[in-house]
Design a binder for these strands. Structure first.
Length: 186
DNA sequence: TACTCGATCGGA
DNA sequence: CCGATCGAGTAA
């Protein structure tokens, strides 16, 4: 119980598989007001330059450089000039892929969760380990497959019909708290 | 250097 | 539905 997920694990396997597996894990934040841990309830996978919804679709740039790192570091960027978005980089080096943390127990929405957990771009590129103040723990929750629901990702219509339709958003089925404005995803 | 447009959210 | 708010990416 309460095992910190090892960086070796983040380097193996792809973003879609990691996204599913992150459901039920705990996001742990050691911040100015103590340590808080919440179960991850909603995520999205972004996988490689071929994925037209992924920031790395245009290749290596100053911003996407973090995504090319070996799995196990945080990728945090500013969205709409307002919201900090938290991603965990996964997979081997030079394959830009990450999992966007969209929701945790009691907090729905990627912008809200970073606000309440005091997460910003200062964490960009830092390891998902206690030393950085933000890490992932496996606390033994095992979710039945039937509880995991897959849908298309939110807000990525710019990616075109094929990539926007990929069912790479994973969430706990029946969860009352769902981000994306409750809209039917398009 | 001048644009455009977001992996969102809260309020009208 | 709309505005906030700013930096990355692109074109020039």
């Amino acid at each position: 119980m309460h095992e910190i997920v090892d960086q070796q694990d983040w380097m193996r396997r792809g973003a879609v598989r990691h996204a599913r597996n992150l459901l039920g894990k705990f996001l742990v934040r050691a911040g100015s007001s103590g340590t808080m841990a919440r179960m991850i309830t909603e995520v999205e996978a972004y996988d490689g330059e071929r994925d037209l919804a992924c920031h790395a679709r245009a290749g290596r740039t100053a911003r996407t450089e973090t995504m090319y790192a070996a799995g196990g570091v945080w990728y945090v960027y500013l969205c709409y000039g307002v919201h900090e978005m938290l991603n965990l980089v996964v997979g081997p080096p030079d394959w830009p892929s990450a999992v966007l943390i969209r929701g945790v127990d009691g907090i729905s929405g990627p912008g809200r969760l970073t606000k309440w957990l005091e997460i910003d771009r200062r964490l960009n590129g830092l390891a998902a380990e206690p030393a950085s103040g933000l890490w992932i723990e496996d606390r033994g929750v095992r979710l039945p497959r039937s509880l995991v629901q897959a849908t298309p990702r939110i807000g990525v219509s710019y990616a075109g019909p094929v990539w926007a339709a990929k069912p790479w958003r994973f969430m706990l089925a029946g969860s009352l708290l769902v981000s994306g404005r409750g809209r039917s995803w398009k």
